[in-house]
Computed example of a mutant assay.
Amino acid sequence: MRRPCGAAFCLLGVQVRTFIALVLLFFGWSSIASADTLETVRERGFVKCGANQGHRGFSNLSAEGFWSGFDVDLCRAVSAAIFSDPSRVEFVEYAGDFRMTPLRVGEVDLMSRNGYWNMPRDNVFDVVYTGVVFYDGQGIMVRDEAEVVSALELKDISVCVVANSLQHDVLERFFFNNQISYQEVMVEDSADLAGAYMAGICDAVTASATSLQEIKINAINPSQHRILPERLSKEPMGPVVRKGDMKWQTIIRWVLFAMINAEELGVNSRNIDTMAEAKNPRMRRLLGIEGEFGQALGLNATWAQDIIRHVGNYGEVYERNFGNTSGLMIPRGANELWTKGGLHYAPPIR
């Protein structure tokens, strides 16, 4: 676990790591991609995971130096699967959009950050998204006094948006396609969005749905604000690994699948000992009681059991970081299981 540090020191550390990573990439250290990451991790004794400070619900570093969040829990799940111990993780902080180079040159083993999956990232940077852990998308929030329940009902409103951003482009396209008149109110960065909207500079604000939810719950009267149901974009998020190591890619993918399957089967961190005595063959395969599925991954038989016991199933991790107990209170929506109308669906272990 990394220790807290002053802003100037942390910034210097990020700049130094950035320089080293770019030098390594320039001199062609792409051969790292063909290395056996699992063996490297085992020899080192811990997983190195890229993280992003200050994104509530996804990853956040406390004043005491403790990392928490959905992305963080996924890294701990990988550690639990390999070492039967969720604490054997070193989190390396990266700011802004600096995501791919440190991964490509072997500075970290995976990036579990709030960067969404798109075609360029999947084809240009020699990295691979291993699955979707969270479905997000750009939304619009208005005050209740607007008396609308759909973005399609908006008319002649002003919308706060970050200037020269992808969200700006998406907003323009949405209003143009639907022939809705509106006025843009530009702000410099994401940090200015909430202040501008709450100050009444604009009638509405646009950002990712998760960011809008955070703005809403921090308002003096959250019930006076409404996030409209339309999603202007698709932003699937998930962990990223280097290309060239199929074994490691498969392990990270099945860590996620195990968490989803566990929720579907009703296995969680509280009832796992009881469920281990069940006769259900699907459950017994998941928990490593029947079959040799862990061996196929290069892990021990109880790899999935260790994930569930120490970190939880998908639903537990979601509730801890986004549910009512987290303060964010983000509805599951598309992040529900497929059996409940959501998009999460995992292949069976068989």
Rank of each mutant, 00 (worst) to 15 (best):
residue 6 G to C: 10
residue 91 F to S: 04
residue 199 A to E: 11
residue 252 I to V: 15
residue 334 A to L: 13
residue 151 A to E: 02
residue 340 K to H: 15
residue 159 V to G: 02
residue 20 I to T: 08
residue 16 V to P: 03
residue 100 M to H: 13
residue 223 S to P: 00
residue 91 F to V: 03
residue 103 L to Y: 08
residue 234 K to Q: 07
residue 155 K to A: 12
residue 163 A to E: 08
residue 258 A to T: 09
residue 314 Y to W: 08
residue 272 I to D: 04
residue 115 G to M: 10
residue 126 D to E: 14
residue 256 L to N: 07
residue 295 Q to M: 10
residue 317 V to I: 13
residue 244 G to N: 11
residue 97 D to L: 11
residue 135 Y to K: 04
residue 275 M to Q: 09
residue 180 I to D: 02
residue 19 F to A: 15
residue 91 F to I: 06
residue 66 F to K: 15
residue 108 V to C: 12
residue 292 E to Y: 07
residue 337 L to N: 05
residue 6 G to D: 06
residue 129 Y to W: 06
residue 37 T to N: 11
residue 252 I to D: 02
residue 43 E to V: 03
residue 50 G to P: 02
residue 231 R to D: 08
residue 13 G to L: 14
residue 248 W to H: 09
residue 328 L to G: 00
residue 143 R to P: 01
residue 223 S to D: 14
residue 315 G to C: 04
residue 287 L to Q: 08
residue 88 R to V: 04
residue 225 H to M: 14
residue 160 C to W: 05
residue 337 L to A: 09
residue 314 Y to C: 00
residue 98 F to I: 12
residue 270 R to C: 02
residue 223 S to L: 06
residue 33 A to N: 14
residue 160 C to A: 15
residue 221 N to C: 01
residue 334 A to T: 01
residue 243 K to G: 12
residue 146 A to R: 01
residue 302 T to P: 01
residue 173 R to V: 02
residue 165 S to A: 07
residue 343 L to V: 01
residue 203 D to N: 12
residue 60 N to I: 04
residue 194 A to N: 10
residue 38 L to A: 12
residue 135 Y to T: 05
residue 132 V to Q: 06
residue 240 V to M: 15
residue 84 S to L: 04
residue 341 G to M: 08
residue 293 F to E: 11
residue 312 G to W: 05
residue 108 V to D: 11
residue 8 A to I: 13
residue 159 V to W: 06
residue 172 E to M: 07
residue 237 M to I: 12
residue 125 F to W: 14
residue 60 N to Q: 13
residue 311 V to H: 01
residue 180 I to G: 01
residue 349 I to R: 11
residue 215 I to M: 12
residue 75 C to D: 02
residue 59 S to N: 06
residue 252 I to R: 00
residue 229 P to V: 05
residue 292 E to N: 14
residue 265 L to C: 02
residue 27 F to K: 06
residue 128 V to P: 00
residue 89 V to L: 11
residue 216 K to Q: 15
residue 273 D to P: 01
residue 90 E to V: 08
residue 314 Y to T: 02
residue 14 V to W: 00
residue 55 H to K: 02
residue 349 I to Y: 07
residue 70 F to M: 09
residue 179 Q to R: 15
residue 77 A to G: 11
residue 308 I to F: 10
residue 198 M to T: 01
residue 108 V to Y: 08
residue 143 R to Q: 05
residue 114 N to I: 00
residue 340 K to T: 12
residue 39 E to L: 10
residue 60 N to M: 10
residue 343 L to F: 05
residue 310 H to A: 14
residue 310 H to W: 13
residue 247 K to R: 15
residue 322 F to K: 08
residue 16 V to Q: 12
residue 215 I to H: 07
residue 152 L to E: 03
residue 214 E to W: 03
